[in-house]
Amino acid sequence: MKANSNLEKILERGEFAVTGELGPPKGNDVEVIKKKAQFLKGNVDAVNITDNQTAVVRMSSIAASKLLLDLGVEPVMQMVVRDRNRIAIQSDILGATALGLKNMLCLSGDHQTFGNQPDAKNVFDIDSIQLIGLVKRLRDEKKMLNLEDEIEGDVGIFIGAAANPFAEPFGFRPLRLRKKVAAGVNFIQTQCIYDMKIFKEFMKAVCDMGLDQKVHILAGVTPLKSAGMTKYMANNVPGIIIPEELVKRMAGVAKEKAAEEGIKICVEQIQELREIKGVHGIHLMAIEWESRVPEIVSQAKLLPRPVV
């Protein structure tokens, strides 16, 4: 065991894992986190806490992760390299683990020009693959980057990273995953999947390289809320591919039935993903729709969550 986190134990036992996602508030109101957490508690094994996602300033990922932990839900602290150099990164990891956080997702981060501080200076001192290596070294060798003396304490972290099978060049994506595995990643959460064909090809390449034996892959899903959202995502969000038939299916139902249809699609997707070799769980990103998580996991027959 690397960190003895709930998520790690579930995956190591060979159970099908479920992770959720929670975006911290654009403010410091703890109630927002409490409210969202109540829908996730008991329905997922761990919850990603985003780190100023889309470069919009929100409550810090470490602080929100600790609040969630205190509410009895296991967090996956996300960390982007956009805003921190290696000094801040290592310091934050030491602090986060001292607070009891055990899962971490290593990311590049969306470019700051997307967010609400577009005039910011970015950092990108190291990249996400170098971050994976840095965390592994802290954990396994107790050494900071480029230093030989051992640190005090244990940095027990279950190391995660993202993969996007839907960003071009497609041929590179399995290779990039191999690189992340070589760097030391323990689990992967993918971008939300709508195009099963592309995802299956990606997973086949991943399994052909034997990567499914070395890393736990959680397939990303996001329920579609409306025909408008589906269309918008299909046309405007880089790195997301939504097949035409799904756009049509969402457009074909009455407005008040759209949410229900979106959830139905999501449940079908989960069932299909479960059958794919190498998929060890799902990462359910019901962003600003946490209230629907209980019914999705229940309909997908993922309840009750195993207690380990």
Partner: peptide, 20 residues
Amino acid sequence: CSKGLYNGPCGGTDNGKCEV
């Protein structure tokens, strides 16, 4: 590369174009 990445593209590459 808009993020100065050393080990390959981020997830935002879109049809060969940068996410930025």
